[in-house]
């Protein structure tokens, strides 16, 4: 019997390897899914440092709990996002604080992009930042469905598994969340391309 090359191994196969004590499987899963976990944590907490803590906690949990993963119930990504969501909520509740919107600015870590259309790029960057702030300002139950369904692109079924709720609940919360986001973007600092161009003119 030949072993499946690890780079082609499914997430579920890697989980089985981790449960059997295969450290290479663990390393592969970490490299493959770290950004998914970190993204959920970062967009739920708004703080890179907290997101790092959450990510590390999630993979420590994978180490301990890999045997408990049930392939038929959800994808590995959904399972990891569910753990990340729980850890992030715990961090937020434990710290008992509002998310500081101005904190954790990662602008220094971003690669400068080439700007063939500076006004358009700037407007897009402003929209991304406005969206980030609007998501962080959502109540947590709406924030998590936006993060999982829109940013993480989980299916409704997987999001329901991650959130441990019904699919219908995911749908209704997502609908409500998008409406709230739209309202926040309208009333927030969202500046369109035309406005930016006017400023640069």
């Amino acid at each position: 019997m030949t072993a499946e090359p690890r780079e082609q191994a499914s997430d579920a196969a890697l989980m089985a390897g981790i449960a059997a004590g295969d450290r290479h499987a663990f390393a592969d899963l970490f490299r493959r899914r770290r950004n998914d976990v970190y993204r959920v944590a970062l967009l739920m907490t708004g703080r890179p440092a907290t997101a790092e803590d959450v990510t590390q906690d999630v993979f420590l949990a994978v180490m301990r709990e890999a045997r408990r993963y049930e392939p038929g119930r959800s994808t590995v990504t959904a399972w990891l996002c569910g753990i990340a969501r729980n850890q992030a909520r715990r961090q937020l509740e434990g710290e008992n604080r509002m998310v500081a919107l101005g904190d954790g600015d990662e602008s220094g870590e971003r690669e400068p992009a080439s700007m063939p259309d500076p006004a358009g790029e700037l407007a897009a960057a402003r929209q991304v930042e406005a969206l980030r702030r609007a998501i962080l300002a959502l109540p947590i139950r709406y924030r998590e469905v936006v993060v999982l369904c829109d940013l993480q692109e989980l299916s409704y079924v997987d999001a329901a598994a991650a959130l441990d709720c019904a699919v219908g609940t995911v749908r209704s919360r997502l609908h409500r969340a998008r409406n709230l986001l739209a309202a926040k973007m309208r009333h927030g600092e969202g500046v369109g391309t035309a406005a930016i161009k006017r400023c640069l003119a």
């Binding site: 770290r34 950004n35 970190y38 993204r39 970062l42 967009l43 997101a51 790092e52 990510t55 990662e106 870590e109 971003r110 897009a124 929209q127 991304v128 406005a130 969206l131 980030r132 998501i135 829109d150 940013l151 993480q152 692109e153 986001l181 739209a182």
Partner: peptide, 17 residues
């Protein structure tokens, strides 16, 4: 469309260093 683009850009920017 702008929302979808902003979501994609935000997701891309939220990668672990």
């Amino acid at each position: 469309d702008e929302y979808q683009q902003a979501v994609r850009d935000l997701a891309r920017s939220a990668a672990m260093p």
